[in-house]
């Protein structure tokens, strides 16, 4: 199994999406099929952006074996109502995030749509998002 870990910082808009681009490159070089690669890149990018906009920062862990798993674990403040956050169009992004093209309220819904397995847990101590993609 191969594992990678990346630190994501709160409000780091200048680098938003950089980690997802690096991960996509790694997976492309490993020969992940384009259709799966694209879904993974979309999910990873959305989750990375969410972490930058909404959390106090956290880490992204990528594990590669016969399937590909992502863990997005942040340090809070948590999602008050996950069901609401999953609704397309619902957003709590601030004006700064919206100016940069974020805050469409599609993030979590998009992630769930493109993932083979999706699991999210959240409390004031942080949010953990687990995603899995089948590559076989």
């Amino acid at each position: 199994m191969m594992e990678y870990s990346y630190v994501i910082n709160k409000d780091d808009y200048a680098n938003a999406g950089k980690v997802s681009t690096q991960i996509k490159k790694i997976l492309k070089e490993l020969g992940v099929p384009p259709e799966v690669l694209r879904r993974m890149a979309i999910a990873c990018y959305e989750a990375e952006i969410n972490m930058i906009i909404h959390s106090y920062g956290g880490i992204i862990k990528l594990s590669i074996s016969d399937q590909i798993s992502f863990v997005f674990k942040d340090k809070g403040p948590g999602i008050p109502d996950i069901n609401m956050a999953m609704q397309p169009g619902y957003s709590t992004a601030d004006d700064r995030a919206r100016e940069l093209g974020f805050g469409a309220g599609m993030g979590l819904a998009n992630i769930k749509k493109v993932s083979d397995e999706f699991d999210i847990e959240s409390s004031v101590e942080g949010t953990t998002l687990n995603l899995r993609f089948n590559i076989l």
């Binding site: 990018y45 959305e46 805050g103 469409a104 309220g105 819904a109």
Partner: peptide, 16 residues
Amino acid sequence: VADLMSDALAMVCSAG
């Protein structure tokens, strides 16, 4: 066509 990037990311068409 999108100004909000999550809207663009939701538009996954097969003819990428």
